[in-house]
């Protein structure tokens, strides 16, 4: 609260100088580049323009982000549901904790070939992969969030006989919210990574597919785009 407040224009400038100058630097350094691996920025932009104009950028983006949001929604549903249930039942938690710790430490990328093999190359395996990566941070943070609620809050809820239908949304969910937000933020980032990775195997459209195709055809300006 002590910091000076800036006018909107000034604060925009303060936030923007670094990315803007980095882009300018990229432009200047790459302008005369003849390396096939470091195409000039202008070429990357025109490749991006082509991709957009052909309508494929739009198609690829819609396809990818439909998968992404579907998976994120599913992992929220499953992660919060199980997270709250496990968080509320300490005995169940004690039994499950070692398994959860083992499972979350497995890199999801390992499952990519297996899942593509077993679920085929359609939309489902991709949604499932993104879901698999996103559900862990949400689940584990929801469990920690519920456990971090002060014991007195639960005791007061018991004493005043707050029924479960009120207790879950107004006590447990709200009480665990700070930690849940941490989990969701992690999931959002991990999901984007998995989105691209999932489309690099056995895909026929999507952003990851576009990157891989371009790279394999040596159209590096497109891959950068």
């Amino acid at each position: 609260m002590n910091s000076r407040s800036y006018s909107p224009a000034t604060s925009l400038l303060l936030q923007a100088w670094l990315p803007v100058s980095l882009i300018v630097l990229w432009f200047l350094l790459s302008a005369s580049s003849t390396s096939a691996f470091w195409p000039p920025l202008t070429e990357i932009l025109s490749a991006m323009g082509d991709w957009a104009l052909s309508g494929e950028l739009w198609n690829d983006a819609v396809y990818s982000f439909t998968n992404y949001f579907l998976a994120l929604f599913l992992s929220l549903l499953v992660g919060l549901g199980f997270g709250i249930a496990i968080g509320l039942m300490p005995k169940v938690g004690r039994v499950l904790d070692p398994f959860l710790d083992f499972l979350r430490s497995l890199p999801v990328v390992v499952f990519v070939p297996i899942i593509i093999l077993s679920l085929g190359i359609g939309r489902e395996p991709k949604v499932f992969l993104i879901f698999l990566a996103c559900v862990w941070p949400i689940l584990l943070n929801a469990i920690v969030g519920v456990r971090s609620i002060h014991a007195g809050i639960f005791e007061a809820s018991d004493a005043y006989r707050i029924p479960l239908r009120l207790r879950i949304p107004k006590v447990v969910l709200v009480g665990a919210l700070p930690q849940i937000v941490v989990g969701v933020r992690l999931a959002i980032t991990i999901g984007i990574v998995m989105l691209v990775v999932s489309e690099m195997y056995g895909a026929t459209e999507g952003i990851g597919y576009f990157i891989l195709q371009s790279a394999q055809r040596f159209q590096l300006s497109s891959a950068w785009a």
Binding site: G152, E155, A156
Partner: peptide, 10 residues
């Protein structure tokens, strides 16, 4: 009414 008011009010 509990001893720890900080912990018992939401």
């Amino acid at each position: 009414v509990f001893q720890d008011y900080r912990g018992s009010l939401m």
